[in-house]
């Protein structure tokens, strides 16, 4: 009976007060192993591996010293697979009904039934130039912005704010300026 209850809790979506501390644990483990929690650095490493050092000194560094972080990435991909294949039931994302209604008027049919909207991310959707452009522009903005800002959610919002660094606070304010503009002003225009 207990076993059943525990399994039920694991298969259901995890509440925020469980998830947040576990993310802090990821940061703590990496610091314990003498590294830092920063996912966007991997994009720079991948550039360096691809030979970008020929074009900019920014990519001239010993990328082999970053292989540990690419290993974290590999693990994260595997983790995503394990979580969806073995640790999930068919429960939907418990979104605010207002959000669901709002997204419906924008043309998103089943908000919360999947992790990402099929209207943008499905293999059929990317036949349309609109969805394809969204993926490309979104990726470019994230890749460029995160390096310009010197970090992303893991490096600035989690690690930077946990270590009470002012630059990270400014960066996170920036994240929200951009995010609020996109979600409140631009997304309603394009959908």
């Amino acid at each position: 009976m207990y076993k059943f209850l525990i399994m039920e809790h694991i298969l259901n979506p995890w509440p925020w007060y469980v998830s947040g501390p576990l993310i802090a644990l990821v940061m703590a483990l990496l610091l314990y192993f003498g590294k830092t929690f920063g996912m966007s650095s991997n994009l720079r490493t991948l550039c360096a591996i691809g030979g970008a050092g020929k074009f900019s000194d920014f990519f001239k560094f010993n990328w082999k010293s970053q292989l540990w972080n690419l290993t974290v990435v590999l693990g994260a991909i595997i983790g995503g697979y394990i979580a969806t294949q073995y640790l999930s039931n068919d429960s939907k994302t418990d979104l605010n009904p207002k959000t669901i209604a709002e997204l419906q008027t924008m043309g998103f049919e089943d908000a919360g039934n999947t992790l990402v909207p099929n209207e943008i991310f499905s293999l059929e959707a990317i036949n349309s130039p609109k969805a394809l452009l969204i993926l490309i522009i979104g990726g470019l903005l994230v890749g460029f912005g995160t390096r310009y800002a010197g970090g992303c959610t893991s490096g600035h919002a989690i690690t930077g704010l946990s270590s009470l660094q002012k630059p990270s606070l400014i960066a996170v304010i920036g994240f929200f300026i951009g995010g609020l503009i996109m979600a409140n002003l631009i997304l309603p225009l394009i959908f």
């Binding site: 943008i120 969204i134 993926l135 522009i137 979104g138 990726g139 470019l140 903005l141 994230v142 890749g143 460029f144 912005g145 995160t146 390096r147 310009y148 800002a149 010197g150 992303c152 959610t153 600035h156 400014i170 960066a171 996170v172 304010i173 920036g174 994240f175 929200f176 300026i177 951009g178 995010g179 609020l180 503009i181 996109m182 979600a183 631009i186 997304l187």
Partner: peptide, 12 residues
């Protein structure tokens, strides 16, 4: 940089 990242984050 943060704002540019934020735009992309909310888009995708």
């Amino acid at each position: 940089g943060g704002s540019i990242f934020g735009l992309g984050w909310a888009l995708i």
